[in-house]
Amino acid sequence: MNILHPNPDRLVTDMLDGFVRSHPGLARLPGTQVIVRSQLDQKVGLVSGGGSGHEPAHAGYVGYGMLDAAVAGQIFTSPTPNEVLNAIRAVDRGLGVLLIIKNYTGDVMNFEMAAELAQDEGIAVEKVIVADDVAVENSTFTIGRRGVAGTVFVHKIAGASAQRGDSLQEVKRIADKVAARVFSMGLALSPCILPTTGKPSFDLPAGEVEIGIGIHGEPGVRRGSIAPLTELVDMLIDRVAAESSLQKSDEVALMINGMGATPLAELGVCAHHAMARLDQIGVKIHKSLLGEYMTSLNMAGFSITVLKLDSELKSLLDETTHAPAWR
């Protein structure tokens, strides 16, 4: 059962206003769906965004040490080029702007059109495309992998790089490095209910799970029968480990991300099993994030992300940030 919105057209703007009033460091650019830091520093600007429905992404990652602006589209719909352009203009301090884009056709096309428009205005714009979802086969015949929860690590580490005053090229280099080393996979125990239609995003018979889901309520790349949690977690970790060629002595950051309706208690159990599996492999866990970072409305399920660290990424990951959703 979903909430009944008196005015569905205002769902996103009402939500953004609720966010902004709850987080003194954030502001909404008047007349837009762009959330910006209420005080900008003299540094390279960082802009991300995408459809809504992934909260706390993306507004929750705006703040000192992470993003300068987040652009919110309608529920599960990429924002328009105009909106992205508004964000770019607002955060550019003359040092250029990096766009952090998740690899979805819509996001890529809308952000790219905005980048072209901004470049026409003389703003230096670079982009990084995050494609961390190893559930999707990577092949040159397709559009490649989706960007999912691993994007949050790009926000964090590129954010720390920009915050310490790195140049646009350097921030881009680091962002690309994170994007190349981050790997995710998720599964769903239930669809989400779309607030616009009130309907489930797919039908799932009892006792089955969707494996390899995205973050827009899509079904997964395949369906499996529900297995004990340890088996499901091992399956995800093993796929991520294989795709990222995890080695015994590697050091990683781990994220156990809830899709929206899985109790934190169960995410804690997932974290326990995931770490046990990584222990078995012999990998060292430098940092582990547990909670909801990139959701799919009220979908039940979770994703597991592994970021392969090196000393540069480690120190940037550990830097301070005041973005409300990083913890």
Partner: peptide
Amino acid sequence: LSTVGGASGPLYA
């Protein structure tokens, strides 16, 4: 361009 968003927005625009 200022209203659709999604993949279809930039394509139709």
